[in-house]
């Protein structure tokens, strides 16, 4: 017979976290440790390096903001930075606007074939990035698919040159490359919408257009925000597309960063450019998220 007097359960000394919390932390720590060691620490070093100076083959480790001064004041770097952000901004807007109807279609009309549509949309993303980009050169080139077709149809007399080796080509190619990234977050947000809300709006007499702008769009805004960031942030730093299709007027900041680390052998300046780009992109992203939040709030 158990007749032990009841007692307050002893807790091991200094146990701030429950066993499950410890277990969770222990399990996540390898991935976290890896990210700290291979991402956070290197990024810190990049930041440090950006305040050093390259003297031909030697590094001067005196801390200075000279590289940042150069990165901001030099017209070429400034041009590349602004162009990167503008191109990336246009790519983002185009991609998201083109992607929304597809996400809408799959979420609301995909029926039992939803997974098939999503698979079809994602497949191109997994095929060789380099070759995909290069193929756009084939499509947009002087003797490319577009020009040959238009010439063959007699729509143009001379091959078009405005579609290759400039910013237009970069925009088209990037919009294509990042399409799945825009569709998926919007799709996820749309498929979470409770359809009874849409029916309620219909009952209240809203037409399809009003219903879309008053109910569907605001409710899927989280997906649109995610899509925007997922496309905008990485495309600012894209290297391959501007290099292959941008010509000289389509080069972007990543190309310059690579040059600094490579041919120019000025890693500190390259680091400063990389850090500046990250800071600018992060600021724009944060501002965008905050503005969006305020906008949604003001609409109640």
């Amino acid at each position: 017979m158990a007749e032990a007097a009841s007692k307050q359960r002893k807790r091991p000394a200094l146990r701030f976290l429950s066993p499950n919390e410890w277990r969770g932390l222990a399990l996540i720590s390898p991935a976290l440790g890896y990210a700290v060691l291979m991402l956070a620490a290197p990024l810190l070093l990049v930041f440090l390096l950006s305040m050093w100076t390259q003297n031909y083959l030697d590094l001067d480790t005196t801390l200075t903001f000279a590289n940042y001064r150069e990165a901001i004041t030099d017209p070429l770097y400034r041009l590349l930075m602004i162009r990167s952000i503008i191109i990336s901004g246009i790519v983002t807007v185009v991609t998201v606007i083109l992607a929304y109807p597809v996400a809408y279609f799959v979420a609301f009309y995909g029926g039992p074939r939803k997974s098939m549509w999503l698979l079809l949309i994602t497949i191109p993303f997994w095929t060789s990035y380099l070759i995909r980009i290069f193929l756009w050169k084939v499509i947009l080139g002087y003797n490319g698919v577009v020009n040959s077709s238009l010439l063959g149809l007699g729509l143009i007399e001379e091959p078009l040159t405005i579609i290759l080796y400039n910013a237009n080509a970069v925009v088209i190619t990037l919009a294509h490359a990042w399409a799945p990234f825009a569709i998926l977050p919007i799709y996820v947000a749309l498929s979470r919408i409770d359809t009874s809300l849409l029916e309620a709006a219909r009952d209240l007499g809203d037409g399809p257009v009003r219903r879309f702008f008053r109910v569907t769009l605001p409710l899927s805004m989280s997906g649109v925000v995610a899509a925007t960031l997922i496309v905008f942030i990485p495309t600012v730093g894209d290297y391959v597309t501007p290099r292959l299709l941008g010509g000289t007027n389509g080069l972007m900041i990543a190309n310059m960063i690579q040059i600094q680390f490579g041919k120019a052998n000025n890693a500190p300046l390259g680091s400063a450019l990389a850090v500046s780009a990250m800071v600018i992109v992060a600021s724009i992203s944060i501002a965008y998220v905050l503005l969006n939040r305020r906008f949604l709030k003001s609409r109640g």
Partner: peptide
């Protein structure tokens, strides 16, 4: 689940 307070004995053995 573990009790926040009190005891459970099974067959006379403390289970805590």
């Amino acid at each position: 689940e573990m009790p926040s307070a009190g005891d459970i004995h099974i067959g006379g053995e403390d289970m805590s």
